[in-house]
Simulated assay, not measured.
Amino acid sequence: MTTEATLPSTSVSPTARQMWTRTRGILLALLLLLAAAVTIAVIRSGAEHGRLDPRSADPYGSRAVAALLAGHGVSTRVVTTLDEARSAAGPETTLLVAVPDLLTDRQQARLQAATAASGGRTVLVAPGTASLDKLAPGVTADAAPSLETTLSPACSLPAARRAGSADTGGIRYSTVVHGADSCYPSDGLPTLLRIPQPPDGGDTVVLGAPDILYNDRLDEQGNASLALQLLGSRPHLVWYLPSLSDDSAASATGGRSFFDLLPSGWIWGTLQLFIAAALAALWRARRLGPLVPEKLPVAIRASETVEGRARLYRKANARDRAAAALRSTTRTRLAPLVGVPVAQAHSPEALLPALSAHLHGDGQALESLLFGPPPGDDAALISLTEQLDALESEVRRP
C-alpha cells in the first residue's frame, strides 16, 4: 500500500483574520461616526426640550418672557391645537405661532380666516415659504438668511425704535403690502415686518428669528424690550405651539408629505452621506485601475508564474509550502529516470530504493532530502533547493 503526498493549498483568498485586519479601520470609523451621531442627538434632544415653550426654563425655552409679561399685567396661555388657537383670537389678544411651518395648508387657511378679522395681533416666529402664502399674504422669504445676528431697527416702528439693536438676524423677508413696517434690515431686506390689517386695527408681525424669545438671549441687546412690546400690546397672550398630534392636522386633506415635515438638517445630512458614499466609491474604483480589454487565453511566461508564486510564498512566510512544492516537483521528474511509475513518485517505499540503486548512495540522506521536514528559515530553504538541483543533475548524468 502506497500513499501519495499532496501539496498544501496555495489559495490566495483572504482569510478571516486578513479580512478583519483590512476592514477594522473602516468598522472603527463607522463606529465612531455612529457614536458621535448618538451623542449629538442626545445633546440636541436635551437642548430642544421645551423650545419656545413659555413654561420651560431651558436655555431655548421662553419662561423668562412669560414672567416679564406677567409683571406688566399680560397673561400668557399655552395652547397646542388649532381649535384652541382660533377660538382665542380676538381684539384683546396677541396670538403667537411658535412654529408656523408645522401647520398644514388647511390649518394655515383656517387660522388666517380666524385672525384676519379678529382685530388682534398675530406674531409669526421665523415663518418660511411653506407658511407665508397663507398666514401672511404678500410676504415672501428670501432664500439667503442674514449673516448677522444683531441688527439695528432702521425703521419708524415705535417698538423697534425704543428697543434699539436686537438679535433679529435670521430669515429675511420682502413684501408688497402697502403701509407695512420693515425693520432690522440685513443687506437691504428686513428681518421683522409688521403688516397692518385694516379696518379692525389688527396686525401681523413676522419675526425672522426666535432669539429674542429665548431665556438665554433675553438679557442681551434690546431683546427684552422688543419682546415685551411685540407681545404685550394686548392684555392677553395666547402662545400656540403647533403639534403633529393635533386632530386638525390628521384630518387635513391638503396636508404636507412626510418629507416636508422633516427638519432641513436631516435632509442635508442625508444628502452629504450620499455624496460621501459616492466619493468613496469613486476613490476605490480608481485604485483598481481602468478596465482593459484583453484577449483570452493570455500566454504568461513560466518564469513570471514562478516568480509571482514565490513572492506570494515569501510574503506569507510559507517556507513549508515552498519546500513541499520543490520536493514534489523533483520527485515527479526523478521517478521516470529511475524506472518508477509517476503514480508512485511520492511513495518513499517505491522511489527511495530505486534512487539508491541508481546512485549507489545513502538512502537515509535521500529520504531526508526528498521527504524530510520543512526548512526552518530562508537559508535552509535555499540550501534545500541547491541540494535538489544537485540530486537531479546527478541522476541525469550519463
Rank of each mutant, 00 (worst) to 15 (best):
L31K: 04
L244P: 00
L68Y: 01
G50Q: 08
L370A: 08
T122L: 14
A249Q: 14
D362N: 11
T15V: 07
G202Y: 11
V139S: 02
R287E: 12
I300Y: 03
V78F: 04
D216Q: 08
A335H: 11
D200V: 10
A380I: 01
L27T: 11
T23H: 15
L388V: 06
T21A: 15
A335I: 12
E220P: 05
G128D: 11
T330K: 03
Q221R: 11
V74L: 05
L31T: 13
A350D: 01
L95W: 00
T305L: 15
L192R: 00
H236Q: 13
R106E: 14
L352T: 02
V306R: 14
S264M: 02
Q344C: 12
V97T: 11
E48L: 15
R309E: 14
S56F: 05
T129C: 00
T270Y: 13
A302R: 09
A160Y: 09
G128C: 07
L189N: 09
W266N: 05
R309A: 14
F274W: 13
L273W: 06
A16K: 06
Q364Y: 04
S225Y: 08
T80C: 02
I195Y: 03
L366N: 02
S45R: 08
R77K: 07
L7Y: 04
T15P: 02
L237M: 07
L151F: 10
L261R: 07
Q221E: 07
E92F: 12
A67N: 14
C155I: 10
A113I: 10
R121P: 03
R51S: 05
V79I: 15
T329N: 09
G255P: 00
L312R: 04
A357S: 12
R319A: 10
G255D: 13
G71F: 05
D181S: 15
V123Y: 08
L132Y: 07
R311E: 11
S152W: 13
A136P: 04
S13C: 07
R284G: 00
E294I: 13
S356L: 05
A37H: 09
L312C: 02
P290K: 03
T115F: 14
W283C: 04
P235A: 15
R161A: 08
K315H: 10
L132T: 07
R110L: 15
S45C: 01
A29Q: 03
D216T: 08
A345T: 10
A36T: 09
H72M: 07
E148H: 09
R55M: 00
T94N: 02
P341H: 02
D203I: 02
A154P: 03
H360P: 00
R396E: 13
L296C: 06
A141D: 04
S264N: 01
Y214G: 08
L95A: 01
A249N: 06
A316M: 04
L291R: 06
I267A: 10
P341W: 01
S245T: 14
Q18P: 03
R172F: 06
A5Y: 11
S347E: 11
R286Y: 08
S146V: 12
A66Q: 10
T191E: 11
G201K: 03
V79D: 15
S87A: 12
T2Y: 02
V125Y: 05
L237G: 04
